[in-house]
Amino acid sequence: MDLSALTPAQLKELVRGLVDDRLRELIGDPDLGLSLGETLRARLKVALTEAERLSGEEVADRLGLRW
């Protein structure tokens, strides 16, 4: 890859991807490899069949969080 041929937007996207990849390596997913319990699995199935969806803002409001 010839970095000198990249536009500023392409370079920015490349750097963003590299940083994201590195952060995933360092932080990782603490839940990776864990299995879901049957109770949680059942609750998720029910939640996914419900028509009502909440936005992130609605959840934050209900929990008293500020972004």
Score class of each variant (00 low, 15 high):
K45N: 11
D29E: 14
D31T: 11
R24G: 12
G28R: 04
L14Q: 00
D29S: 12
G64F: 00
P30F: 02
T7H: 03
A60I: 00
I27P: 02
D61W: 05
V19C: 07
T49N: 14
G56A: 13
L36V: 05
D61S: 11
D29T: 08
D21K: 13
E58N: 03
G37I: 00
I27S: 08
D2R: 07
L48N: 11
E50F: 06
Q10G: 00
D20N: 13
V59M: 08
S4Y: 07
E52L: 13
L3M: 04
S35P: 04
R41A: 11
W67N: 07
W67S: 10
Q10I: 00
R43T: 05
L40F: 10
T39K: 13
M1L: 04
G17N: 06
R41N: 09
L40Q: 10
R53H: 10
K12W: 00
D31N: 12
G37R: 06
G33M: 07
S35D: 12
D29C: 10
V59K: 05
A51V: 14
A5G: 02
V46D: 13
T39N: 11
S55Q: 03
I27C: 09
R41E: 13
G37L: 03
E50L: 15
L32D: 13
L18N: 06
L3F: 05
S35G: 11
L32I: 07
V19Q: 06
G33C: 08
A42F: 08
V59C: 05
R53A: 14
R41Q: 12
K45L: 11
A5C: 02
L48E: 15
V15R: 01
S4R: 11
L63R: 08
G37N: 09
D21E: 14
D29G: 08
R62Y: 09
A9K: 05
L3P: 01
L44T: 04
E50A: 12
E38T: 12
G17I: 01
V59Y: 04
E25Q: 12
A9M: 02
L11I: 00
V46F: 10
L3W: 04
K45D: 13
T49L: 14
A60C: 05
A51Q: 14
A42V: 05
V19A: 10
T49K: 15
L18F: 05
R24K: 14
M1N: 04
D2S: 09
R16Y: 08
T49R: 15
L34A: 12
R66E: 14
G64W: 02
R62V: 05
G64A: 04
D2A: 08
R41F: 07
L65W: 08
R62H: 07
R16P: 03
V15S: 01
L11P: 00
L32R: 15
E57Y: 03
